[in-house]
C-alpha cells in the first residue's frame, strides 16, 4: 500500500452527485451522517467540492443533461479516488433503462469501483460498500 492509499483510508471525504436520482438514495446517504449511523465518527464528511473529496458517490441513472457534468467532475477528482454507484439506478439504470433521456448506468460514463444495489440501499449497505471499497485501495 502506497502512502497515498494509506492516507486515503483514514477519514475519507465524500462528494455526493445526483445525476437523475429520485431523492431516495440521497436521503439515505444523508441518513448515514445523522445520529443513528453517524459515520462522522470515522471522519467521513460530505464536502462541497470534488477537489477536496476522496470518494465520489453517484446516485441515479445518468440523464442526458448530467452525463457531461459527471465526466467533468470525475476528471477534476484527485486520484486515486473511489467512485461509488449508489442504488439500483446507478448500478444498472433500473426501471429507467428504456427511457429516451437516460444515457445509461454510471459505469457507462466513468469507471466505477463499488456498486451498492438496492432501491434505496439501506444505510448499513452504503457503509459496508464504502468500507469494502476503501479496503480494496
Amino acid at each position: 500500500m502506497g502512502l497515498k492509499s494509506w492516507s486515503l483510508r483514514k477519514s475519507p471525504w465524500i462528494f455526493h452527485l445526483s445525476t437523475g436520482s429520485c431523492n431516495n438514495c440521497d436521503i439515505e446517504l444523508l441518513d448515514c451522517l445523522t445520529p443513528k449511523f453517524d459515520v462522522e465518527r470515522f471522519g467521513i464528511v460530505l464536502v462541497g467540492s470534488i477537489r477536496h473529496a476522496d470518494a465520489l458517490i453517484v446516485t441515479g441513472a445518468v440523464t442526458r443533461q448530467a452525463a457531461p457534468k459527471l465526466k467533468y467532475l470525475w476528471e477534476q477528482m484527485p486520484k486515486p479516488g473511489l467512485v461509488v454507484a449508489l442504488g439500483t439506478c446507478g448500478c444498472s439504470s433500473g426501471i429507467f433503462r428504456d427511457s429516451y433521456n437516460i444515457i445509461g448506468p454510471v459505469d457507462k460514463i466513468i469507471p466505477v469501483d463499488v456498486y451498492v444495489p438496492g432501491c434505496p440501499p439501506k444505510p448499513e449497505a452504503i457503509i459496508s460498500g464504502i468500507v469494502k471499497g476503501l479496503a480494496k485501495l
Binding site: 445526483s18 437523475g20 436520482s21 441515479g60 441513472a61 440523464t63 443533461q65 448530467a66 426501471i95 429507467f96 428504456d98 427511457s99 429516451y100 433521456n101 437516460i102
Partner: peptide, 14 residues
C-alpha cells in the same frame, strides 16, 4: 430545471 428529467410519462406508456 430539467437536469433530472427522466422521461417518466413516456416510460409509463410502456
Amino acid at each position: 430545471i430539467g437536469w433530472n428529467h427522466r422521461g417518466i410519462e413516456k416510460l409509463a406508456e410502456t
